[in-house]
């Protein structure tokens, strides 16, 4: 679980979990008719529904590949949540396998939002290429 204490993240460089909070800053909060709202042109990236990606052919193939790698002999009939399952996942993480599709897809949007995270932060794992908008990273 990642807990982000927002009040400690307001300082320079405190951009962990930025995307998670920005959607609230952009979509929630008080709107008063007498005030004008700044145009949100240029930030449509936030509106991309990344679940579309999860239901794609690519995902099916990747799930199939991932299942092939799973060590079912380790205990297919065991109830979920046993400690050995946790150990297995930790171990596979240590071997540097790519992170899963679900959180990986979320990560893509996080990155695409515009290099929200500081350079060198270990959570940045993917480049997103074409969607990057240099200006948004200012």
């Amino acid at each position: 679980m990642s807990v982000v204490p927002e009040r400690q993240s307001g300082g320079a460089g405190g951009t962990s979990g930025l995307y998670d909070v920005l959607e609230l800053v952009l979509d929630r909060g008080l709107v008063i008719d007498a005030f004008v709202r700044v145009s949100l042109v240029g930030i449509e990236i936030l509106k991309i529904d990344i679940r579309v990606v999860v239901a794609s052919v690519d995902t099916y193939l990747r799930f199939a590949e991932a299942c092939n790698r799973l060590d079912l002999e380790a205990g297919p009939h065991r109830s979920p949540g046993l400690p050995d399952l946790v150990g297995e996942v930790t171990e596979s993480g240590a071997r540097g396998k790519a992170k899963g599709a679900l959180s990986g897809a979320a990560q893509t949007v996080t990155d695409a939002l515009g290099q929200a995270r500081e350079k060198g932060e270990s959570r940045v794992r993917r480049a997103t290429g074409s969607r990057k908008d240099k200006e948004e990273s200012e």
Binding site: L24, A66, H77, P80, E88, G100, L102, S103, G104
Partner: peptide, 18 residues
């Protein structure tokens, strides 16, 4: 605000196990 995703390997294991 609370968000949840699945840890892929664990959830795949669960799906196959069931």
């Amino acid at each position: 605000n609370v968000k949840a995703v699945h840890r892929e390997e664990v959830v795949l294991h669960l799906v196959l196990a069931g």
